[in-house]
Amino acid sequence: MEIVIAIAFLGGLALIFGLVLAAASKAFYVEVDPRLEKLNECLPGANCGGCGYPGCGGYAEAVLNGEAPIGKCASGGAECANAMAAVMGVEAGDVVRMVALVKCSGHRTYDEHGNQTGGAKLKGNYEGFKDCLAASKVGGRGPLVCKYGCLGFGSCVKACKYDAIHVVNGVAQVDREKCVGCMSCAAVCPRQVITAVPYEKTTLVPCNSHAKGAVTTRSCSAGCIGCGLCKKICPEDAITVVNGLATIDYEKCISCGLCATVCPKKIIVDLNEAPPSEAMAKAAL
């Protein structure tokens, strides 16, 4: 009997509170913009943070409030931008697909005796924790002689959610087909050697060395010495040499590939000449 009373009492109490809550949820109902949910559906939901907002939900809210432009989502690309534009009732505009580029060609090569024949020279063997940030803290900015190049311990590989970046011969390399341009890799790189470049542009300068030509030559067999030949031949004036490093302005670049043909160090890569991996490997030699 006691059990029946206890159940009845607590059940009744719960019922009353339930009814009160039901009434309160009607009284305090907050309308949610139905477009928000639709925008969330358009986005890939990877929460990579490439747009600069906290996750896909944060970006959708910013777009809804008019704080963010449509087309910031690199991983969703044009398809996602068009879908979002349809929800918001505006035109998407052109979305340039960006991919990551590791600005380093210091792939290390060795002869049969294990002596290094090419690539970025090492000060010594780093035996510590296999992480770029950790490595960059020891021995005066890490184990490479070059102060700018890729350390190759793969912090970016761990950061990539799309399996699009891998370390090949001591240098990280981007799979341009898999890369969605979220730039998570660039965020974790202690040397800031990774940048975003437009996918359609096929001439690349995979070097980050701002050192003087002679210093660069001593530290790496594949470094830009800032000679400026590419700048002279460029028909569109798209190349400038900034602090000893050739830099392409992709607003102007027409991907003609002339700069790649004149580069004495074969640093500038023309992807039309060879598939990316081969061109990169060639540049490394």
Binding site: E2, I5, F9, L10, A14, F17, L21, A24, F28, Y29
Partner: peptide, 30 residues
């Protein structure tokens, strides 16, 4: 009254949870 004081913790949690729910709805709106 019902001699159910051994159920006090459960009953109190029920009351508190309901009140928090109402406060949450109130804050969300206001």
């Amino acid at each position: 009254l019902l001699e159910l004081t051994y159920m006090q913790t459960v009953a109190f949690i029920l009351v508190i949870a309901s009140i928090v729910q109402v406060v949450e709805m109130f804050l969300k709106k206001m």
